[in-house]
């Protein structure tokens, strides 16, 4: 039975392995390069200092990481692709009628279903886990310099990718068992996955816990927000009320200091209610709390969806 489950999803498993191998071929050299830069620019030492030299070093390092960072943001779709792909063989059986063959052999439909779903789920989790490990290893220098709470990083590390993969598998299955059209079901399931992810990434996640605020004078050193997820930051008054005046106010506070260079007068800005910086953020210490909440959210949805698919297959599909 287990052999059959593997054989049935052989194409999808090989595809996932191929994809992971390709990613490894891409990320391993880059990761090694990043580590070299990290040591060369002496980034570790700068994590506790805020000197001008360190500022420079961090900037260098950030540039060195290059365009790959933004490209890799798309990797967040990968757990969804993996999950949806592994739903495919089960739905294909329903569409082709091969499930009728499977369900009239010597094992019960319940056992068939338990094994098929179990193997599909384990494969998605393993693939998403391997992806996470790979990305986390590659990002180690970047994470220690810039944190891993921002959108586009948070959802590639920790435990959430596993939950995403299970969720996408559940979506594909739930749509597929009802519709029994493999290609269309997977497209719809994947779109629903992207939709849910966009909603959570851009709206829901920052509301898991009330964010914190920090206010500091514009000539004062920045507070330690490293690794935090900055939701917004900008000029404000001393109480942290955001500055609402236009650009011309700032302009009016600027005066020439010779050689075409302008400098802004802090006292002038303070008079207009812009003498301070204010940031709203989720502190780095909440990373694992947020990971836990989001894993539970998508994991829970995955259980509901897979449970629904199983119930439908056992009681509604003939």
């Amino acid at each position: 039975m287990t052999w059959l489950s593997w054989r049935e999803q052989r194409t999808e498993t090989l595809l996932a392995l191929g994809l992971l191998a390709l990613l490894a071929a891409l990320l391993v050299p880059v990761g090694l390069h990043l580590e070299t830069l990290y040591r060369q620019d002496n980034v570790a030492a700068c994590l506790t200092q805020a000197t001008e030299a360190c500022h420079q070093a961090m900037g260098n390092f950030g540039n060195g990481a290059g365009a790959l960072r933004s490209v890799l943001t798309w990797l967040t779709l990968l757990p969804g692709l993996l999950g949806a792909a592994l739903a495919a063989p089960i739905i294909l059986d329903l569409e082709s009628g091969a499930s009728v063959f499977a369900w009239t052999q010597g094992v019960t439909r319940t056992r068939w279903l338990a094994t098929r779903l179990g193997v599909a789920l384990l494969t998605s989790l393993a693939a998403a886990g391997a992806l996470t490990l790979l990305v986390t290893w590659y990002r180690r220098p970047l994470d220690s310099a810039f944190g891993r709470f921002d959108n586009g990083v948070f959802d590639l590390e920790g435990t959430v990718p596993l939950a995403y993969a299970a969720f996408a598998l559940g979506l594909g299955l739930a749509v597929g068992v009802v519709w029994r059209r493999t290609a269309l079901s997977l497209i719809v399931g994947f779109l629903a996955y992207v939709g849910s992810r966009v909603f959570v990434d851009s709206w829901l996640r920052e509301r898991y816990e009330a964010p914190l605020g920090a206010t500091w004078g514009i000539r004062q050193p920045e507070p330690a927000l490293r690794g935090a997820w900055i939701l917004s930051s900008g000029p404000s008054d001393k109480a942290g009320h955001p500055f609402t005046g236009g650009f011309q106010v700032i302009e009016s506070c600027a005066r020439g200091v010779g050689g075409g260079i302008k400098s802004v007068d802090p006292a002038c800005l303070a008079r207009h209610g812009a003498g301070f910086n204010h940031a709203i953020y989720q502190p780095a210490s909440r990373f694992w709390l947020f990971q836990g909440i989001e894993t539970a959210l998508f994991g829970g949805l995955a259980i509901v969806l897979i449970g629904f698919a199983a119930w439908w297959l056992l009681s509604r599909v003939e």
Partner: peptide
């Protein structure tokens, strides 16, 4: 069943193996 549904991507040998895995009295 009608139209004799089987796993289309399997070879005949793999179908036999499937039968042996799914049936205690094979």
């Amino acid at each position: 069943a009608q139209e004799h549904p089987l796993f289309g991507s399997f070879t005949v040998a793999e179908m036999l193996r499937t039968g042996s895995k799914l049936n205690p009295t094979w």
